[in-house]
Nucleic acid binder design. Sequence first.
DNA 1: CATTCAATGTACGCTATCGGACAGTTCGCA
DNA 2: TGCGAACTGTCCGATAGCGTACATTGAATG
Lengths: 230, 230
Amino acid sequence: MRNRLLRALPAADFDRLAGGIEAVELPVRTVIQPVDTPFEFVTFPGSGIASIVAVTSDDRRLEVGLYGRDGMSGQLLMLGGDRSPHEHFMQVAGAGHRVRARELEAVVEESRAARLLLLRYVLSFTLQVAGTALSNGAYTVEERLARWLLMSDDRLDGEEMALTHEFLALMLGVRRSSVTVALQVFEGAKLIRARRGHVRLLDRAKLAEIAGDSYGGPEAEHQRLLGTPI
Amino acid sequence: MRNRLLRALPAADFDRLAGGIEAVELPVRTVIQPVDTPFEFVTFPGSGIASIVAVTSDDRRLEVGLYGRDGMSGQLLMLGGDRSPHEHFMQVAGAGHRVRARELEAVVEESRAARLLLLRYVLSFTLQVAGTALSNGAYTVEERLARWLLMSDDRLDGEEMALTHEFLALMLGVRRSSVTVALQVFEGAKLIRARRGHVRLLDRAKLAEIAGDSYGGPEAEHQRLLGTPI
DNA sequence: CATTCAATGTACGCTATCGGACAGTTCGCA
DNA sequence: TGCGAACTGTCCGATAGCGTACATTGAATG
């Protein structure tokens, strides 16, 4: 059980949930939560990365947030919602656990500690989304790409990530070739090592320098509020 | 008392708060909530518009969200936070009420109904922020400006809004003259009436057409979840 | 009523990014 | 082992929006 939220849940609450917890494989492109569909399960990844993507009616897509072992799919459930206008899908393959939304709701209803824990996660998530709004509005493609790589790396312990330029472009809402060029710049500066369909970070510090204020704020707040790094 | 959240609060909870509720004037540029400062009050505007702005270390500013009589300043308080990395300030002057953060926390702690109400507002707010991320990443200045005007107008019942191009540019993270030009286009098409420091919407339907999917989704969800228009 | 300053209109060259196309490369599968 | 599909590199003209500067207008104030 590698998901940080499940691990941080008070033992009594965890035990109450335990019977309903189900291990799941999360291959790349798995849709964890379809658009505007009533919540059935809440998924807690233990590894891999899930993207939350807004879809426009002319079928453009843009990432508004992401999570891995630090989060879960039911952010809006915690706020009293029953569905999400965004799609959640696995951007980097992984595995995790899931629980029926109703069961989690029941536990959270009764346990103040569980509620506070998950709401603090939702807080951290909200800051991340605000950070995405800022990035998209005020930073260049290169800066935004650096931010994205750092955020993903945070959730993967420096593992190599299986990602194509095409996917990255989708996430950032830019052309595929803009990503290609930016990655070349990073590789030229030995900040990353890129191979067909794979990226590994080599120099987080320099990437953070490039990302500037688009990276770091929400992450620091997460650490402060949840008491653990992402 | 025109704030929708205060009005929707169960009578018993409202009465518990009532002693601590204080009427406040909210002139333009009033800072309702300074950056990274522990919450002291939660402000419920009854009129006017508050902007939530992210500030970078090189002092660029960009709006991530806004609220008026539909919202309150303590979004993060409801999630267990004690401060916000964003600045809240009045973009259009108004008036409202405020309560000590502790008092609101105490009421929410004990009243499930109050908690659910305010969390549903936070949900709606989160969708708005995600909408800002989408707008900033995937829409043109004209589309984003149309969205902003509509969102503001929603909170002002068609009143004229006192706004300069400079302020609008700040909100959208674009040049002042880009706003000037876009407003001219709108005025030329008789969608708005602009005078020095003032804008009034004349044709919401056409503006919504221009804004496209950048406007409407979060607003519809708000209606569905809170049971009232914004 | 004159003055001053904020707000607005406009112009110009510049840059990032787009949209789209195409060729080369690598991978997995037949 | 060879083929086809997916991925990556590169290039082109087009364009939205930038940065900056300056002129004009209107409102408020002495």
